[in-house]
């Protein structure tokens, strides 16, 4: 079972590397990969496609900032965040807003594995842990 998982992961990585064009995920290539898998089949297709999906999702998350906010966020602010992240990570980053009342006030930006916390809820949590 373990070796099947390893083989599936290895194959998924190969498919993933084929889906990248100029350092970004290409929608055409992804469609091509899915078409190939559907036509030709593969051993453990569910395992392969799940691993492939995880790799693509991780890669896409690196180029997309989710801005959680409590209070108003306008397009100019989102554009400024996207520009700042693009500069910081050296890749094209887009930003979308996601309201979250639990933050009380402020922002929390998710991009890939990184989280930039600038909310009152986050600061109170930090305060609570430091007491």
């Amino acid at each position: 079972m373990a070796s099947h998982a390893k083989i599936a992961l290895k194959f998924a990585r190969q498919l993933f590397s084929m889906s990248i064009v100029d350092g970004a995920v290409s929608a055409d290539r992804v469609a091509g990969v899915l078409e190939y898998v559907e036509k030709h089949g593969t051993a453990n297709p569910v395992m392969v496609l799940k691993a492939y999906q995880r790799l693509i999702a991780t890669e896409l998350a690196k180029g997309h900032a989710i801005v959680e906010h409590a209070g108003a966020v306008n397009d100019a602010m989102l554009a400024a965040i996207a520009a700042s992240m693009t500069k910081k990570y050296g890749r094209a980053v887009t930003a979308t807003a996601k309201p979250n009342a639990e933050l009380i006030a402020g922002l929390r930006v998710h991009i890939g594995d990184d989280v930039y916390e600038s909310s009152v809820a986050g600061q109170l949590a930090a305060l609570a842990s430091s007491v």
Binding site: D113, D114, V115, Y116, E117, S118, G122, Q123, A126, L127
Partner: peptide
């Protein structure tokens, strides 16, 4: 004072 000190900070965390 503590809140004022914290409010100017943006904390970066790496998560999984």
């Amino acid at each position: 004072q503590q809140i004022a000190k914290l409010s100017s900070k943006t904390v970066k965390k790496n998560t999984g």
